[in-house]
Every structure is written in structure tokens, then in C-alpha cells.
Design a binder for these strands. Structure first.
Length: 464
DNA sequence: TTCTCTCGTTCGCCGTTGTT
DNA sequence: AACAACGGCGAACGAGAGAA
């Protein structure tokens, strides 16, 4: 059976499911569009889990989407995370293990040295009873409010800061420059501060850091190596460090690094290998995922042959790109995009709390793609029950702007101190560590929320 | 009806770290 | 040194809810 025909089968089945489940979540619909490009992972129920067809792989997601949609329609209700009060309690921010690399911005907030990797606390573990979003926000804002009132830093006008630096050519941080942040990560200091009582710290704990002096530390070795940072070629769009999309205007405007032709060649190569070795697609998928969580380097000769075969179909692409591409598309994990159940989130939180961020390892436990685990954790679970999803309160917004303003000021000082360092040529707000801002807000907002909020504030300021 | 805000989710890109 | 996995950023998308 050819992939297109299998995909059509999958599409047909999904359409039939839709007819029986009119309440499919919007994300499912969108994903289907995306997956039209062809993903064995996306259509895994064609190949895999014969004992768990749609009913098991998709229906839970749909069931979840029902509740999710309902939740989102009732904005006043607690968010998913907030609704976990019975099982999670008041969430202390489940600080991630100290990112060994971090944007150097992190250290602007902290003078504490980075600790070694440690398992972050479980945000779902026993914690004080959950308060609602507004109360958690109020709690988290108190220390900073006092700071705000005493601070000489006025509320930031987003457009101002941006305008101040936006004419500088963007330049990506060199590895040496960014790695200098390892000297001190606030995430590190946070997790280091309370490794033995992961469940107790709360927003107020994380708020203590705003009162710390803004200091900058650069390890000598890193500083020395940062003299000549390697810069990427500036993109055509000077306001962004990212290259312009290659398919702007396409129905799916996401940048595609692999053309349909390349995708087809890869698919053919995989199928050829599969047929030649009399394997099932599931077995091939497992082969492609082989190495994940089992060691860091592929030593399997047969696997090397396989990758040589596949990567040869895209000679212009870096080998690792091809491998990543395949691992995103050929897998036996649970269909990507499925909504997360509270049980899954709790399980992931527990796994991370117990063993750290071993995504490949946990992917085998949870039957979720490692990147799904990673993204879910860092975007949502890390906030635990603190995260609010309602509109930003004015005072919360001011607090947010104050933190961003502080960060930009620190960046300005850094830039002034290193005028020759092209790392600072890009708009400074592009150097902001939103994870850190989120932490400073007491995890009442995720990094994505913070990032999005900043952009909205900018748009708002620019339109007025 | 239109616009704005927010959401959940996916994934491209780049850098760092660890293993062989 | 090469490779593989991981970490981090942030753009993109479609959609719902509510305000204008």
C-alpha cells in the first residue's frame, strides 16, 4: 500500500469519526490539515496499535477536547491547571533543572551560580490548597508591587524600548556568548534553593528574586571565548533573527525545511528499506526512533546503513536535519496533538520530578513524542496550578512591564559595557528570557503568555 | 459583524552538552 | 571530531469568547 493511499484511508477514517464526533476540537481539524503532508506518526493508527485503534489513540483526545473546548468557552472558570486543585494543590513552580545553557539574560537576575542538573519538583505533588488565579496573582505580585512602587523605573512603554534598538542589525548570539549564561541561571538557583522540598515553594518564593540585585557574571573562560562570536547571516527582515519563511502565503505558512519532493524521497527510501527487509511500518518506526533514550550515539551498524540510505535522498540537507525530520514523522507514539489529560500531566510531572527531564526516556513510558513531553512541560506544567489564563489585570500587566523593563535595562547596561559585541546589535527585547519573566511573575503566566503579551503591548503602543 | 485577546499546539532553528 | 540528544526561543495557525 502506498503512503498516499494509506493517508487517504486515514483521512477517510477520520472523516467517519468526525461524522460520529461532531465535537472535534479545532486543533484536531487544524492538525489534520498539517498532517496532510504525510506523517506516519500522524496516521499511526493505520499502521500501529491494532489493538488500540482510534478508540484508544484518538478518542481520549476527543473526549478531552470536549472538556477543553467547554473550558475555553467559559473563560471565567479556572484553567485546566487551576482546576487541578484536588490533585495538585497549590502549585509551586516546578522549576526545571537548571538549563546548562541559558540565555545570558537569566543571570542578569541572579548572582547565584548554576547548579548541576537536578530533578525539578513535581508541581502536582502535595502542596497547599489551590487558590484561584486572582489570588495567586495577587500573592505573586505583592513583593514586586512594593518594588514597583519604590522603583525608579517607570512602567515601560514597549514601543520605546523596541524603537531604541530596532535599527541595529540582528545577530544571533554565538555559542560562546550564550553559553556564558551558564554561569548563573535563575532557574538553577531556584531549583538549587529548595531541592529537598520541591512541593512547598510557591509564587512568593519565586518572587523573592526580583529583589535581588541585577548582576552579571561571566565565566572567564566563556568571556574569553566570546571575543569573536560566530554570527549567523542576518535575515532579510531586520526585525527578526529568524530567516524569512520559505513559503509565505502557502496554505500552511509554516516554514518547510523539506520540500514535498524531499519528503517524498525520504518516504520512498523508508518504504524501500521496509519492504526490502520485510518489515512492518511499525518496526521501521521503531528503528527510526532507535537510539532515543538508549544512549546518545547510534552504534548499530544496520541503523547506520539505514540512515545512510535515507539521508542520501537529501544530499543537500544536513544529516541531522534528515534524522530529526524522520523522527518527527515516523514514530509509534501516541498521535501527536492529542490533548493532555490531567492524568498525563500529573504523570509527566512526577516523572520529571523523580528523574529529571529525560524526555526520550519518559517518551517510552508515556507513549508520547519526546518533543511533546518537553513542550508540554516547559509551556504548561512548569507553571503548575499557578498559571492564570484569564485576562491580564492592570496591576499584573504593570508588574509584567516592570520585569521586562528591568531586563531591558540590564541588557542595555550589558550592551554599553560591551559596545563591540555584536550580540547586542539585535533588538534587546529579543534577548529577553521569557522563562525567567514567567518565573518572576510567580509562574502565574507561562513563557508563551509572557512573550505573547509583550508583543501585544508593543502592537498596542505602536498603534497609538 | 468585526476586532481583540487568549488559547493550545506544532515545529523550525540554533546552540549546548554528552557520548563514542 | 563527529554524532546524537537535549534545551531554548518564538513564530505560526485556527479557533473561541467577549468587547466594540
Amino acid at each position: 500500500m502506498t503512503p498516499p493511499s494509506m493517508l487517504r484511508m486515514a483521512e477517510k477514517r477520520k472523516r467517519q469519526d468526525e461524522e460520529n464526533n461532531h465535537s472535534e476540537s479545532p486543533n484536531h481539524k487544524r492538525r489534520r490539515v498539517v498532517q496532510n503532508g504525510g506523517s506516519y506518526g500522524a496516521t499511526r493508527d493505520v499502521y500501529d496499535h491494532p489493538s488500540s485503534p482510534d478508540g484508544e489513540s484518538s478518542s481520549p483526545s476527543r473526549a478531552r477536547s470536549l472538556s477543553s473546548s467547554g473550558k475555553r468557552r467559559q473563560r471565567a472558570k479556572p484553567t485546566f491547571s487551576q482546576s487541578q486543585s484536588t490533585s495538585k494543590g497549590k502549585g509551586k513552580e516546578p522549576e526545571k533543572p537548571p538549563p546548562l545553557m541559558n540565555r545570558f539574560f537569566s543571570r542578569l537576575f541572579s548572582s547565584q551560580p548554576a547548579s548541576s542538573k537536578a530533578a525539578p519538583p513535581n508541581p502536582f505533588s502535595s502542596q497547599p490548597p489551590l487558590s484561584n488565579a486572582s489570588s495567586s496573582k495577587a500573592t505573586s505580585s505583592q513583593p514586586s508591587l512594593s518594588r514597583a512602587s519604590s522603583s525608579k523605573v517607570p512602567p515601560l512603554q514597549p514601543s520605546l524600548s523596541r524603537a531604541s534598538f530596532s535599527d541595529a542589525p540582528p545577530a544571533r548570539a554565538s555559542s560562546s556568548e550564550t553559553s556564558s549564561s551558564q554561569a548563573s541561571s535563575s532557574e538553577a538557583s531556584s531549583s538549587q534553593a529548595s531541592p529537598s522540598q520541591p512541593s512547598l515553594p510557591n509564587a512568593s518564593t519565586s518572587q523573592a528574586s526580583p529583589l535581588e540585585p541585577l548582576s552579571v557574571k561571566v565565566s572567564p573562560s566563556k568571556a574569553a571565548s566570546s571575543q569573536a562570536p560566530a554570527l549567523k547571516v542576518p535575515p532579510s527582515n531586520p526585525s527578526s533573527s529568524r530567516p524569512p519563511p520559505t513559503n509565505v502565503g502557502a496554505s500552511s505558512s509554516r516554514t518547510r525545511i523539506f520540500t514535498p519532493e524531499e519528503t517524498e524521497r525520504i518516504t520512498v527510501a523508508v518504504e524501500t528499506y521496509r519492504d526490502k527487509h520485510n518489515m512492518t511500518q511499525r518496526e521501521v518506526n521503531d528503528l527510526i526512533q532507535k537510539g532515543l533514550g538508549v544512549g546518545r550515539t547510534v552504534v548499530d551498524t544496520e541503523l547506520k546503513k539505514f540512515w545512510s540510505l535515507v539521508t542520501a535522498t537529501c544530499s543537500g540537507k544536513p544529516r541531522q536535519k534528515v534524522i530529526d525530520f524522520c523522527r518527527m514523522r515516523f514514530h509509534n507514539f501516541k498521535a501527536r496533538g492529542g490533548h493532555w489529560t490531567p492524568e498525563e500531566e500529573e504523570q509527566l510531572a512526577q516523572l520529571v520530578a523523580q528523574g529529571g527531564t529525560k524526555w526520550a526516556k519518559w517518551s517510552l513510558v508515556m507513549n508520547r513524542h519526546p518533543r511533546d513531553l518537553r513542550d508540554r512541560y516547559r509551556n504548561y506544567i512548569i507553571c503548575g496550578s499557578n498559571r492564570a489564563s484569564d485576562r491580564w489585570a492592570p496591576e499584573e500587566e504593570e508588574m509584567f512591564k516592570m520585569h521586562v523593563h528591568e531586563a531591558l535595562e540590564a541588557l542595555e547596561r550589558e550592551k554599553a559595557a560591551k559596545p563591540d559585541n555584536s550580540f547586542y546589535d539585535r533588538p534587546l527585547d529579543q534577548l529577553i528570557d521569557w522563562q525567567e519573566i514567567s518565573r518572576r511573575l510567580g509562574r502565574t503566566r507561562s513563557r508563551l503568555q509572557c512573550m505573547s503579551k509583550w508583543k501585544k503591548l508593543q502592537r498596542r503602543a505602536e498603534s497609538t
